[in-house]
Computed example of a mutant assay.
Amino acid sequence: MSPILQWFFRNRKTGEITIAQAPNLVLWVVIVAGVLHWIWPWPGASAMVLDIIFRGGLVVWALDEIFRGVNPWRRCLGGVVLVYELAILL
Rank of each mutant, 00 (worst) to 15 (best):
I39H: 02
R75G: 10
E65A: 13
V60K: 05
N71M: 11
M48I: 08
A62V: 07
V49A: 14
S46C: 05
N71F: 14
P41Q: 05
P43I: 07
W42F: 12
R74Q: 13
G56D: 00
R74A: 13
L58C: 13
D51E: 15
A45W: 10
P72V: 08
V70M: 05
H37N: 14
I52C: 04
W42I: 09
N71R: 09
V49D: 03
R74I: 15
V60R: 03
I52Y: 12
W73Y: 15
P43W: 01
P72D: 09
L58I: 15
F54Q: 07
R75W: 00
L58Q: 12
N71P: 00
V60S: 03
W40F: 12
W38R: 04
L50G: 03
I53Y: 15
D51H: 10
N71Q: 07
W38N: 13
V59Q: 01
A45N: 05
G44A: 05
E65W: 02
I53S: 00
F54L: 14
A47F: 04
A47N: 11
L63A: 13
G69L: 10
M48Y: 04
G56Q: 04
M48T: 12
D51I: 05
P43D: 13
E65G: 06
G44R: 08
F54T: 10
S46A: 14
G57R: 02
G44T: 11
G56K: 14
G44I: 11
W61G: 09
R68F: 08
P72M: 11
P43G: 10
I53H: 11
N71I: 11
P72Y: 11
I66T: 12
P41L: 09
G44D: 06
R75T: 12
W38E: 08
R68N: 14
E65Y: 00
W42A: 10
L36D: 07
F67E: 01
P41R: 04
R55P: 01
W73H: 13
I39Q: 06
